[in-house]
Amino acid sequence: MIELKNVTFGYPGSTRDVYEDFSISLLKNKIYGLLGKNGMGKSTLLYLICGLLRASSGKIAVDGYDAQLRRPEMLREIMIVPEEFELPKVTLDEYVMINAPFYPRFSKDVLVN
């Protein structure tokens, strides 16, 4: 379950908050869509849930874990690929070997197929 309670977040230097007193509960075993125009806060919401951004107020929990703490028990259940990122100069096999331990349910068979 993902739960946001009274979350407020704004980027430094911005005159408006992206989220103000925002609350939502996303239940387990459900599929949700995240739709909206560019700049409406879709990526920001995902980064808040992953703990990559921190709300100025409110609480964000993923399966009961405080998202801001980025605990390994929470992070092993989450994967986000940002819009822009740089990969290290390693082979795919090396990258998998480095990162697979963080994801206990990772399957190399699924990756290859």
Rank of each mutant, 00 (worst) to 15 (best):
90 V>N: 01
25 S>Q: 09
84 E>N: 13
75 L>M: 15
23 S>G: 07
103 Y>W: 07
98 I>L: 12
52 L>E: 02
79 M>P: 03
75 L>E: 06
16 R>P: 01
64 G>A: 14
75 L>S: 05
87 L>I: 07
27 L>I: 06
93 D>V: 13
76 R>L: 09
111 L>R: 10
42 K>N: 11
103 Y>P: 04
17 D>R: 15
67 A>M: 13
94 E>Y: 02
87 L>G: 07
78 I>T: 05
108 K>H: 02
101 P>H: 02
63 D>T: 10
2 I>W: 07
74 M>A: 13
47 Y>R: 15
42 K>A: 05
21 D>N: 09
75 L>Q: 08
110 V>L: 15
36 G>L: 06
19 Y>D: 03
38 N>D: 13
20 E>T: 12
73 E>W: 09
65 Y>S: 10
45 L>R: 04
58 G>V: 00
21 D>H: 12
69 L>N: 05
59 K>C: 08
64 G>F: 13
29 N>D: 05
101 P>E: 05
53 L>I: 00
64 G>V: 13
65 Y>G: 12
52 L>Q: 02
36 G>N: 10
79 M>L: 15
17 D>L: 15
3 E>F: 08
42 K>V: 11
85 F>C: 05
60 I>V: 05
5 K>D: 00
84 E>K: 15
108 K>Y: 03
56 S>K: 08
91 T>W: 02
101 P>D: 06
112 V>I: 13
48 L>G: 06
88 P>S: 11
48 L>D: 06
32 Y>I: 10
81 V>W: 01
20 E>W: 11
105 R>Y: 13
89 K>V: 11
62 V>H: 10
50 C>Q: 02
81 V>P: 02
85 F>V: 03
63 D>R: 15
73 E>V: 08
106 F>E: 02
6 N>K: 04
26 L>F: 02
19 Y>R: 05
64 G>I: 14
93 D>G: 09
44 T>E: 08
75 L>F: 12
112 V>N: 14
33 G>M: 10
1 M>T: 12
107 S>V: 13
106 F>C: 04
43 S>Q: 03
108 K>V: 04
34 L>E: 08
80 I>Y: 13
59 K>Y: 08
100 A>P: 01
73 E>P: 07
4 L>R: 01
92 L>R: 03
45 L>C: 01
99 N>P: 03
68 Q>K: 15
85 F>A: 07
91 T>S: 04
22 F>L: 00
56 S>L: 03
57 S>A: 11
113 N>K: 03
54 R>F: 04
74 M>F: 11
56 S>P: 01
77 E>V: 10
8 T>W: 00
57 S>W: 00
78 I>V: 05
39 G>V: 05
63 D>A: 14
30 K>A: 14
